[in-house]
């Protein structure tokens, strides 16, 4: 009961102190808000860059050309063999007749194909389109496929794909580093602002010690105050990541510039982002307060 009463008083005091030290609280809240807005924006950018790179990666296909003399039965057997290899996402067999048909129907190739007599032997090869799970392993998978009997060649845009993969890898890592670095900078900035807020209340801490408050009794209201400042400071960034992002997504119809760059769907991303921002605000607020208050508890 006694502990409960003390905790209730601490919660009441933390609310009161936010208003009693209004200008300093506003400074702390503004600092938290500004830094978390930057984190929110970088989070949106990072998630969408990653989404784009994943979409491009998903589009990379190994085209396996099969020997001309194979029957459809043989082709299907090879398709099954490939399906059973590791790192295979999907496999789709396209027989040469179907490919010729597609070529003839396509605007681009129709002019070339019109000179071909359908009665003549089909010059094309049967092909299997393979999508891989891990694009980093594409070369190894293509090499394994090429060793299967009946496979003529396995093409996936060698050289370019590797280059693309390494560029995307750099972008991904850079965006993660940027977000983590921003979170660290945010933590540092917020904790220092709160430190200044508490610095001005050294006298209060001194009086609390003087009247017999234990260190933990002194720390708790300040920690709760930091938590409250963190929550208040994360409101605007949360609004930006939820309403702002939905607005952006709806206005651009879920894509940027062209169909290639599709935006990350707001749900569940905005909720996860909002939870992350709230968590950063709360943890950083509490840790900042604790760091500052600890300094004044040394005798």
């Amino acid at each position: 009961m006694k502990v409960f009463r003390i905790l209730l008083r601490d919660i009441r005091d933390s609310f009161r102190n936010v208003f009693r030290n209004f200008s300093l609280s506003v400074a702390s809240i503004s600092c938290i808000t500004i830094t978390l807005v930057v984190v929110a924006v970088s989070l949106i950018l990072s998630v969408n860059v990653n989404k784009f790179t994943k979409l491009v990666q998903d589009d990379v296909t190994i085209v396996v050309f099969l020997d001309k003399e194979l029957s459809l039965e043989d082709c299907k057997k090879i398709e099954t063999k490939i399906k059973n290899l590791g790192n295979i996402e999907s496999v789709k067999l396209k027989d040469k007749e179907k490919i010729r048909q597609e070529f003839m129907e396509s605007k681009t190739y129709a002019s070339i194909m019109k000179d071909w007599d359908t009665r003549e032997e089909n010059p094309l090869q049967d092909a299997i389109h393979v999508k891989v799970k891990d694009i980093n392993e594409i070369k190894k998978t293509a090499d394994t496929i090429e060793k299967i009997e009946g496979v003529d060649v396995a093409k996936y845009g060698e050289g370019m794909v590797e280059q693309l993969v390494s560029i995307f890898d750099i972008i991904k890592k850079a965006s993660y580093i940027a977000v983590i670095a921003l979170i660290i900078v945010t933590a540092f900035l917020i904790s220092n602002t709160i430190k200044i807020t508490i610095f001005s209340r050294q006298r209060e801490i001194g009086i609390m010690r003087l009247v017999g408050s234990s260190n933990i009794n002194i720390k708790i209201p300040f920690i709760l105050e930091g938590l409250l400042l963190g929550i208040l400071g994360s409101i605007i960034p949360i609004i930006i990541i939820t309403y702002g992002y939905v607005f952006l997504y709806d206005n651009f119809n879920g894509k940027l510039f062209s169909d290639i760059i599709k935006l990350q769907k707001p749900n569940p991303f905005m909720f996860q982002g909002a939870a992350l921002l709230l968590l950063i605000g709360m943890v950083v607020g509490m840790v900042g307060s604790l760091r500052a208050v600890k300094k004044y508890l040394k005798v």
Partner: peptide, 10 residues
């Protein structure tokens, strides 16, 4: 009252 509240009195 500040000096008493730390004791958790009613």
């Amino acid at each position: 009252a500040f000096a008493l509240e730390i004791f958790g009195l009613p």
